[in-house]
Structure formats: structure tokens, C-alpha cells
């Protein structure tokens, strides 16, 4: 068993089976690098993860610890020499499993928690969790107005009125076809 500590003061600690915690590439690499240390006695602090987020992470890795490992696509070093028929503009299709749909903090008041979870999944390199979280946000954005998206993402419109008008003009073709 491995102990993970949140960044709270005082830190909150969670004890997680090693197999589950190794779903995080970051922690797996750390454990491999520290082979020989008694890691069961050394709590691993996670500076970017608070207790509620860590609790979610632990729940997710415990649920998915027996999943088959994801198949990783070989990386193409030189884009120009890639003559395969694969299109690289879009991520591979991701289907959010039923359990994960219920697991993700999807209520509007939990939006902040969802973003923290994405941040933690990214920091801990838990790719499948990051994928389903990003897919959820992408689905949420789909079909919404620009104003709605700005509000949901809490992003300021930093275009000048002239720039905004020019941009609207450039993509107006998509509306008018």
C-alpha cells in the first residue's frame, strides 16, 4: 500500500493499493526511481492536489485498477514523413463509461471541482481520466453560443471590437452556407 498526501494544511493522507496508484504515470515513475526505499512508510506529497480532489482520484484509480492498459499509438517523430492514412486533427474516439459518468463532478456548482480533477489528472499523468474529463467538457461546450462558452470557462473576451468583428466576418461563411 502507498500513502498519498494532499496539499492541505494539515495534509490529508490516503492509503491506496500500489497497483491502483500506478495508474498515475507520475507516481509510477517516482516509485520505480525510488526502488529500494521503503515507500510504504514514506507518504508521497502531492503539491497540486487538495483533499477533495485527491479523494476523487483515489476513488477513480481504485475503480479502474484492473482495467486493461490502454494501447498507446506509436509516436511519429517527423510529421512530414508520415504517409499513413491516419488523420491527426482529432483525438481518438472516447466513450465515457457509465460508472465514470456518475463519478465525474458534473453539476454546475461542482464545475470548479471538475477543473481541479482535470488539473490533478494532468499533473499525475492519468491519461484515461484526463481524456474522459476533457471529453465531458468538450461535449458540454458543443452547440453552445460563444457567450455561454466564455461564461462556462470563465474566460474574458480579450478581442478589441474591431478584431471581434473581423473574426466574425471570417467565419460567417460557416453560418451562411
Amino acid at each position: 500500500m502507498i500513502q498519498l498526501c494532499s496539499n492541505d494544511d494539515p495534509p490529508v493522507s490516503f492509503t491506496v493499493p500500489r497497483k491502483a496508484v500506478e495508474l498515475s504515470k507520475t507516481i509510477k515513475t517516482m516509485l520505480e526511481d525510488l526502488e529500494g526505499f521503503d515507500m510504504e512508510q514514506t507518504p508521497i506529497p502531492l503539491p497540486n492536489v487538495d483533499a477533495p480532489t485527491l479523494e476523487l482520484i483515489v476513488k477513480w484509480v481504485e475503480q479502474h485498477q484492473d482495467d486493461p492498459p490502454p494501447v498507446e499509438k506509436p509516436r511519429v517523430e517527423d510529421d512530414d514523413s508520415d504517409d499513413s492514412d491516419a488523420d491527426d486533427d482529432q483525438e481518438p474516439e472516447v466513450v465515457i463509461p457509465e460508472w465514470d459518468k456518475k463519478f465525474l463532478p458534473t453539476d454546475d456548482e461542482q464545475k470548479n471541482q471538475l477543473f481541479k480533477l482535470l488539473n490533478a489528472a494532468n499533473y499525475l499523468e492519468i491519461k484515461p481520466l484526463l481524456d474522459i474529463g476533457c471529453k465531458y467538457v468538450a461535449d458540454k461546450i458543443s452547440g453552445q453560443t460563444v457567450e455561454w462558452v466564455r461564461d462556462y470557462l470563465n474566460m474574458e473576451n480579450d478581442y478589441t471590437p474591431e478584431e471581434e468583428a473581423k473574426l466574425k466576418e471570417e467565419i460567417a461563411w460557416a453560418e451562411g452556407l
Binding site: 483525438e91 460563444v146 474574458e156 473574426l167 467565419i171
Partner: peptide, 28 residues
Amino acid sequence: LSDLPDEILLKICAYTPFPDRLSLEEVN
């Protein structure tokens, strides 16, 4: 979301269908 690193936002963009990517272009 605006606090998150580019790699997360990029992933969200990549999962967004084309017409909605156009909306994203308009966000900021």
C-alpha cells in the same frame, strides 16, 4: 479552466467537433 495549462485546453479543443471549434476560436 482558464487557470489550467495549455495541454488540457488543447485536449478539450481536439475533442470538440469542428463547428464548435469555430466558436472556441471566438472565445479569446
